[in-house]
Amino acid sequence: MSKERVSRRQFLSYTLTGVGGFMAAGMLMPMVRFAVDPVLKAEAGGDFIATPKKVSELTDEPVRVDFTFKQKDAWYESDVTESAWVYKDGDKIIALSPVCKHLGCTVNWNSDKEHPEQFFCPCHYGRYTKDGTNIPGTPPLHPLDVYPYKEKDGFLYLGKAKPRKEA
């Protein structure tokens, strides 16, 4: 036993401070967590989705690549299939979103006989050059979105399509 005895009053105040501290921390922690939550959140859109396309099969002619991923809409989970027009430009791969920037139809490659080697939207005759730039005078006002891509085990992986700066 030490010489300095802990008095009843001291003992009670120590315990109260301790318990009070825990309670305060218990209340404050979630609040702090909420406040810094946006910082802790993992960057969405960083996920790359596997496509069934081998990188070695790509040529300088755009081909359609379909890929499927799961999307959660409230409690309903569904498989969503998206497409991309993919081709090789030198040793770079270009993956363009097929969604027309006008009103969202699907554009096709080389399907308009009068304007070959272009992306063509059958809805309102919008056109894009091979690199996805919108052709002035046709309805679309922005170039096609671009998918970031990765190569893994020989297969092409695509991320989330990103809009481009004005051409």
Partner: peptide, 8 residues
């Protein structure tokens, strides 16, 4: 079909 022709 809707996916192809969304805008029209």
């Amino acid at each position: 079909l809707e996916r192809q022709f969304t805008g029209r």
